[in-house]
Nucleic acid binder design. Structure first.
Lengths: 218, 218
DNA sequence: CAAATGCTTCCGTGAAACACGGAATTTTGA
DNA sequence: TCAAAATTCCGTGTTTCACGGAAGCATTTG
């Protein structure tokens, strides 16, 4: 029996549907469905998870970070990435981060099953359209510096991304401070640091940035 | 028994998953899954379809045309639109085209079921978050004149739209005031009026609104 | 015509947020 | 271990926001 968890931070319906698709299959038990990464982190310790499916969209920093975290802290969890938007950087980064499998939304349910079984068995599984060897080589080469420059601008910290998210939801400094148990001045500091790191002049720039990177939903 | 068909031209996995989610339910039989509209048109005559779910993405002209076609030629087919990208225009256009229901990817499986049952029973079903003032205003306004017109919810004045535009470009009140030869207090007033008219609480809401309505570019 | 309504303009006031700088403590990574 | 980064907080002055009021015009409408 394979214990399977799924994360989709952007499309609840997709999450539920995918769970329905897979829960009907032999040898598969859905042990968790998560609409946010923090949710997952909070709950995952209490769960048995063999394979974790992460649906990755355009905004992928947090998902990539999660994959890194998982592959270092709990390597018994095998990560299968399903990318919802065609973006090369997602492939490189997720595999570099330690994902064991990579599929796209183009792939069928049976392909997902094959991927799950392969990954559970300790094998990697990549979408047919991706040439394994070339890709792996490429990624190994990229270990160090890269021409594509696909990493996140400014190297924002977790806290800072958190702040952007809340701020993008319309929370005031006070509300954020209460929620994070810090003072409003600290919230201001974080904002200042963000603006400095990203070299933005106005908060509008920041908001647009956040939207482009799907840190917040329009 | 409800005969259900699903169209998703962008995401085969979503199509399959959604079918899996719904086919497990009482009273529902999936009679067709389509990855293209021409596919659907070719095959649909030979099928019994009570409810047709159409997953609509950003490019939606073809889907909208299909809805029009269906509601005029085969009104016995009730169309339920599930929009995958949040875009106000999709709402207006699909409802105008004759869709009986409207949901978003945010909605749960149970909400879809309710929508399906409602629609089968001859009732319309719209997502809760959609039945707001903006929608009603907009559709009422659209009754009569054509799309493409720059009429906006809440009856914003020219000046107010001007303010939104500048503000969305990152201009400060002072800069706007200089550019428009008015005082900064007047700029503030305009902003206040805008927020009141649109019933927004935070400027984030306003910015998101502006982006949705193509007042500013991300 | 007179009244009503909406647009544009402006102001007062107190609260909140921003810009800029400094600084202490904790975490992290090489 | 030790430097760098992250996180926390504050001072000070400027700007914006929230809420309210109001005056001058243009228009529409009874």
């Amino acid at each position: 029996m394979i214990s399977l968890a799924i994360i989709d931070t952007h499309n609840p319906l997709m999450l539920e549907s995918l769970a329905a698709l897979l829960s009907g299959k032999d040898e598969i038990a859905i042990t968790g469905q998560f609409t946010s990464i923090t949710d997952f982190i909070k709950t995952s310790r209490t769960l048995t998870i063999n394979v974790l499916i992460i649906n990755v969209y355009k905004a992928h920093i947090e998902e990539i970070e999660l994959i890194k975290k998982i592959s270092s802290e709990t390597p018994c969890i095998n990560v299968l990435v399903i990318s919802m938007e065609m973006q090369e950087s997602v492939i490189y980064e997720s595999i570099k981060a330690g994902a064991k499998g990579y599929l796209t939304k183009q792939d069928s349910g049976s392909e997902i099953l094959m991927a799950i079984y392969s990954i559970r068995g300790g094998y990697d599984y990549y979408n047919k359209s991706i040439s394994n060897i070339i890709l792996n080589n490429y990624i190994r080469e990229m270990d160090g510096d890269e021409p594509g420059k696909t990493s996140f601008p400014g190297n924002l910290s977790k806290r800072e991304i958190e702040i952007i998210r809340f701020w993008g939801e319309g929370l005031t400094n006070k509300e954020m401070a209460d929620k994070l148990f810090i003072s409003t001045r600290t919230v201001e500091s974080h904002k200042n640091h963000i603006m400095q790191k990203l070299n933005f002049k106005t908060s509008i720039d920041l908001l647009k940035f956040a939207i482009r990177n799907n840190l917040i939903n329009v």
